[in-house]
């Protein structure tokens, strides 16, 4: 028997016009140059050892509007910042973030765990995750899952 359950019965429906773009809320575009500037700022903060400021900066302005390549580059820098942060500081840093910033932090943690570079630093990201969840509860996790604005 033909596998009729797999037929896309909505394909011919003219009113069926929901695309992925419709579900993504509007975000401000972020240019490559602007992103580059942020990466430089982060590197400077990192070399000074100011992890708290760096994390705060990362979570303050998530690059929702950047293209895939730009996001990838930015993520690599973020992972560097996360790994260079002392384990003992994590709790204190997460506590200092606002609710919105905590949501953004989780987006970076999940994206990091999915990336090649993040997987090499898996232990660090998991430590961040564990310590953050202790403070924030599960809210930011479900918000990461349902939010279509990605970092």
């Amino acid at each position: 028997m033909e596998d009729w359950r797999r037929i896309d019965i909505d394909a011919l429906d003219p009113e069926n016009n929901l695309t992925l773009e419709d579900l993504i809320p509007e975000v401000e575009p972020v240019s490559q140059a602007e992103l580059q500037q942020r990466v430089t700022n982060l590197r400077t903060l990192m070399s000074k050892g100011a992890s708290k400021d760096a994390i705060s900066l990362i979570t303050e302005q998530p690059p929702y509007g950047a293209d895939a390549e730009g996001k990838e580059q930015y993520l690599n820098t973020v992972i560097d910042v996360l790994t260079s942060t002392k384990q003992t500081e994590i709790t204190q840093i997460v506590e200092s973030l606002s609710l919105e910033q905590q949501n953004v932090l989780f987006k970076f943690l999940y994206k990091g765990m999915a990336s090649q570079k993040g997987q090499q630093q898996g232990g660090v990201l998991l430590a961040w995750f564990e310590k953050s969840v202790e403070i924030t509860g599960l809210g930011p996790v479900v918000r990461y899952l349902s939010d279509r604005r990605t970092v």
Partner: peptide, 12 residues
């Protein structure tokens, strides 16, 4: 007049 959102740490 206003839209207020409360984020919680609970499951949805």
């Amino acid at each position: 007049k206003s839209i207020l959102s409360v984020s919680t740490s609970h499951l949805p």
